[in-house]
Amino acid sequence: MTERRDFLSGAWDSVPTLPANVPFGFVAGAAAVQAGFSDLQAVAMSALIFGGASQLAAIDLLDSGSPLVIVVLTAVVVNLRYVMYSAAIAPYFQEFRSKWRLFASQFIVDTTFAIAVTEYERDPETDRLAYWLGVCATIYLGYVLGTAAGVVVGDAVPDGLQLDFAVPLLFLALLVPSITDEATGIAAAVGGFVAVAAAGLPMNVGIVVAALLGITAGALADVAEVGA
């Protein structure tokens, strides 16, 4: 049964994300209850939005009394990068039946995207839907259960553990292997430096601008390489 095998290998390949992913959920849950969310609302936030950075941004703004429109807009802007993942993963999802495409899309985040695309590129024989569902089972459940734990424990997390640092480390572990040649290196360099330079821009819009410029720079370098 290749479906079953590919589901399990997706679930297993995603286990290394848990040490970063579960604490991220935990932080989102703890922050939400501290900001006045009910237990159910805090867990629903992770289950429905499923985007830690945007949840933390939204909680932060709610805490400082921002209007609801700004809170929601900010959460969505922080998640704008999912449009790029949606575009990048769409060719692989094309073979799914449309209701599975709609379902599978809910679980697009940095890690599920990066792990699945790596596998799809490595082995074209993989059952893509089964593998995707396996990846998402581990990452989604880990994140939502982490949130539930954060809701229960609430304020008792010691800051000294600096668990928030696990998040950039996880992105770093995905970033390094994604740099395979000069053009991808240029994309990363431009993306990184512009993000630093644009960090002062409101609503995390700097990340989106940086990513778009990085992609453009990579594509231009690619064209130049091919043309030379």
Partner: peptide, 18 residues
């Protein structure tokens, strides 16, 4: 081809400021 540059650009933009 352009979409191949999404992961390095986005991930670097998320990591470097941190």
């Amino acid at each position: 081809r352009a979409l191949a540059f999404v992961p390095p650009a986005v991930l670097a933009a998320l990591v470097l400021p941190e």
